[in-house]
């Protein structure tokens, strides 16, 4: 195995991870909810009842506002997308459809589910991580 030492950022990755965990903890302990992004977006599309609309919109607005606030105090790290338009759209369709069918994404199953020791989320996480490893192997090495 060949480790990419130049791009390896263990400290900022860990610090960012702690923040992601803190966000999940805030949602759980204050709002009594799972901070699962795909589930929150999906239930907005299903037109939730009045009381469940506001916090969902606010949560997503917080994520969107984060880069704006961040850029006021520091240089926002680059978010580089190297995928062409066709594959990018295919990717979005798969992520949207798949997370709804599988009832969760990296936040709901990966962070919250594993934290609550859910067997269902462990299977989901191993499956989507495995599928992502496989996809990159195929696109970068088999058909590069």
């Amino acid at each position: 195995m060949n480790i990419d030492w130049i791009n390896f950022t263990p400290y900022s990755a860990l610090a960012g991870g702690l923040l992601v965990g803190l966000a999940a903890a805030l949602m759980l302990l204050l709002n009594g909810r799972i901070a699962g992004i795909s589930g929150i977006v999906g239930s907005l599309l299903q037109r939730p009842r009045g009381g469940d609309f506001g916090w969902r919109i606010a949560f997503l607005a917080g994520i969107v506002a984060a880069p704006l606030l961040y850029s006021l105090v520091a240089l926002l790290p680059e978010g580089r997308i190297e995928t062409g338009w066709g594959p990018l759209i295919l990717s979005g369709l798969l992520v949207g459809y798949g997370t709804r069918l599988g009832s969760g994404c990296s936040s709901g199953h990966g962070v919250c589910g594993l934290s609550r020791l859910s067997g269902r989320s462990l299977v989901a996480t191993l499956t989507f991580m495995g599928a992502a490893f496989l996809t990159v192997f195929v696109t970068r090495h088999l058909f590069a």
Partner: peptide, 9 residues
């Protein structure tokens, strides 16, 4: 569902 998400990711 998780596999499709993983392919997309």
């Amino acid at each position: 569902g998780s596999a499709l998400f993983g392919f997309g990711w």
